[in-house]
Amino acid sequence: MEAEAYVASVCFKHGPPCLLGVELEWVVHHRDDPGRRLDPDHLAAALGPHAPTTLRADSPWLPLPSGSPVTLEPGGQVEISSLPAPTLAAVVDAVQADHRHLTELLDRAGLVLGRTGLDAHRSPRRVLDTPRYAAMERAFAPIGAHGITMMCASAGLQVCLDVGEAADVPTRWAALNALGPVLIGLFANSPDLAGAPTGWASARMLHVLGVDPRRSRPVPVTDDPAQAWADYVLDAPLLCVRRPDGVWDAPDGVTFADWVDGALEHPPSLDDLDYHMSTLFPPIRPHGYFEVRYLDAQDGDDWIAPAALLVALMDDRALVDAVVDVCAPVADRWLDAARLGLTDPDLALAARRVLDLGIPAAAGLHLPAEQATDRLVALREALDAPEATNGRKS
Rank of each mutant, 00 (worst) to 15 (best):
E4T: 07
V7M: 01
A8V: 15
F12M: 01
P16S: 12
L20P: 04
V22N: 01
W26A: 08
H29G: 00
D33W: 00
D33E: 07
D41C: 11
A45H: 08
A46M: 03
A46F: 10
L47D: 07
G48V: 01
L62Y: 05
P65E: 14
G67C: 04
S68C: 14
Q77Y: 00
I80P: 04
I80R: 01
S81L: 07
P84M: 02
A89I: 10
A90W: 12
A90M: 06
A90H: 10
V91G: 02
V91M: 04
V92I: 12
A94H: 02
D98Y: 00
H99D: 08
H101S: 14
L105V: 09
L106M: 12
L106E: 06
A109L: 05
G110I: 00
G117D: 00
A120W: 00
R126I: 09
V127L: 07
D129I: 13
R132P: 05
A135P: 00
P142D: 03
M151E: 04
A155N: 06
D162R: 01
V163E: 01
V169F: 00
R172G: 09
A178W: 01
G180P: 02
G180M: 02
I184Q: 09
I184K: 13
F187C: 03
A188R: 05
T198M: 03
T198D: 00
R204S: 01
M205G: 07
L206M: 14
L209H: 15
G210N: 11
G210T: 11
D223G: 12
Q227T: 08
L234F: 13
V241D: 15
R243S: 02
D249Q: 03
A250W: 15
P251V: 14
G253D: 08
A257Y: 15
D258I: 14
H266T: 07
S269R: 12
S269N: 08
F281R: 09
P282T: 07
P286W: 00
L295F: 05
L295R: 08
D301P: 06
D302R: 06
A307R: 10
L309P: 05
L309D: 00
A312H: 05
L313R: 01
D315T: 13
D315S: 11
A322Y: 11
A322D: 14
D325R: 13
C327T: 03
C327H: 02
D332E: 06
R333K: 11
W334H: 03
L335D: 06
D336E: 04
P345Y: 06
P345F: 12
P345Q: 15
A348W: 15
A351I: 11
R353S: 12
D356G: 09
A361M: 04
A363N: 15
A369I: 13
Q371D: 05
A378V: 08
E381P: 12
L383N: 04
P386V: 04
N390E: 10
